[in-house]
Each structure stands twice: as C-alpha cells, then as structure tokens.
Amino acid sequence: MISPDSDIHVRVRGLRFSFGSRVIYDGVDLDIARGKITAILGPSGTGKTTLLRLIGGQWRPKSGTIEVDGVNVNKLSRNQLFELRKRMSLLFQSGALLTDLTVFENVAFPLREHTDLPEAMIRDLVLMNLEAVGLRGARDLYPEQISGGMSRRVAMARAIALEPALIMFDEPFTGQDPISMGVLIRLVSSLNKAQGLTSIIVSHDVKEVLSISDYAYVISGGKVLDHGTPEAIRASRSEYAQQFLHGRPDGPVPFHYKSAKSYSDDLLEPAK
C-alpha cells in the first residue's frame, strides 16, 4: 500500500466479489493516490473491468468497502451516487457512445445534461476536447461510421468534458495504431499533470502504461499479486509479475482456462 499519510482518492479494503460461483475478488486492498496515475495490470478475465464498475458503484461487492473521497460508495443513495459520479468518469472498453447521436453530440451530452452553458461555449468545449483526441474533423459522423479505436477516443473526449477529478480508463489503448497510442498516452499524462486528475488505467499494454504511471498493481486470481512504483514492479522478484510483464506463456499464471480433464483425456473421450 502507499504510505498512509499520502492523500488517498480511492480506498478499497477486503473486497470480495463473485459472479455466481465464480470468485472474481477474494480479499483485495487497493489505494489510489489523488492526482496520480495508477495502473491496474493483470491477465484477461481477472475482473479488471469489474473493479472499475465496483468503484463507480454500478455493482455491489459481496463484502468489503470501497471509498471514494472518504465516502463508502455502497452506502450512498441513488441521488448521492449520481452526485459523486459527476466528479468521476469511466471510459468503457467499448466506448459506450450513444449511437443515435453524432460524435459532436456525444461529447456535448454530459455538458448538456449537467450544465446550463450557452450553446457557443458548449461548441467551443466540444471542439477543444475533440481536437485533443484528433477527431475534430469527425464531429458530424455517427458512431457506426467510425472505427472501434476512434470510438474510444471520442469516449475519452466525452469523459474529460466535465473535467472530473477521477477518471477510470478501461483498456484505452486497445485497437489504437502506434501514432494514436502515442498521442493518447501523452494526453492521459498531460491531463494528469495539468489538471491534477486522478487516473486509474486498466490495461494489457504493460510497457506503455508503466511508462506514464506513478504506481501499479498486478492482479490475478482474485488477489493483488504485486504493487509498487513502475520501477519496483519491473524489478519485482515475483514470478507472477515477471511472467505477466514479459508475456511468458509458462509460469504461475495459467494461460489455459481451468478444465476438469487433461487435454489428452478430453481428446480421446468418445463424442456423445
């Protein structure tokens, strides 16, 4: 954990969560420092997206507490939760753009819903945010006319529209070409520095994410396997962390999803 005296934005304690009988989290403690970039790394299927939804109060943990700004997210009423969410953004992996609105209207959506800004100011803000993600020229297109990578960039422009204090990125770099990825990495980093934004980045792109994060957690099998500064993670002696960082197929994290039978038994078994 980060030293107790530093300013904690999100505090997770003893988090347990499961989908039916499948355990996703089995006692996880996390501290997300205010104004810093924290990376959550881990193989697919470890429930990284679930963690973001739990922090956003969309799902409830089986046990444990999640505090944002010192407030237990799961004790809030629906209205209080919505007030809290005005200060946080979750960038969905799919982008979650509203398909009946243009790119421009999607970015304008939170501004129109939560502010009384004049149209001219909304226009300027939207164009500035779209310029930051390189899609000002795509403002009149509909979500079905742009690629998945572009959708995520629009979603990023929308996520920063209300200038939240906390922003959670779910796989923001997936599907981006190297140029866009470089720009987005710089954007996340500069947002953090310029606006003092707390950022949580869930990602597989270990090298890129570690290059801009201040702190990182490695999660697998429902537990935190390792945590520390990027340097500490890179130098970690934990076999789990090393396997994940270097993408080795063999190691403590199994590549194969758990199966009741061995591969050969499964193949030799007569078809029913």
Partner: peptide, 21 residues
C-alpha cells in the same frame, strides 16, 4: 441493444439516469 452496448451503463456513469433520459 442500448443495454448490450453499454450505452445505458455509460449514461449511469455520467450521472444521467437512463430511466429519466
């Protein structure tokens, strides 16, 4: 389909109530 493509969840996370909107 809005639900399947996370549009309703996305709205909720933007503090916009999908029931009202």
């Amino acid at each position: 389909l809005m639900k399947a493509t996370d549009q309703l969840s996305g709205m909720e996370m933007m503090a916009v109530d999908p029931i009202k909107r």
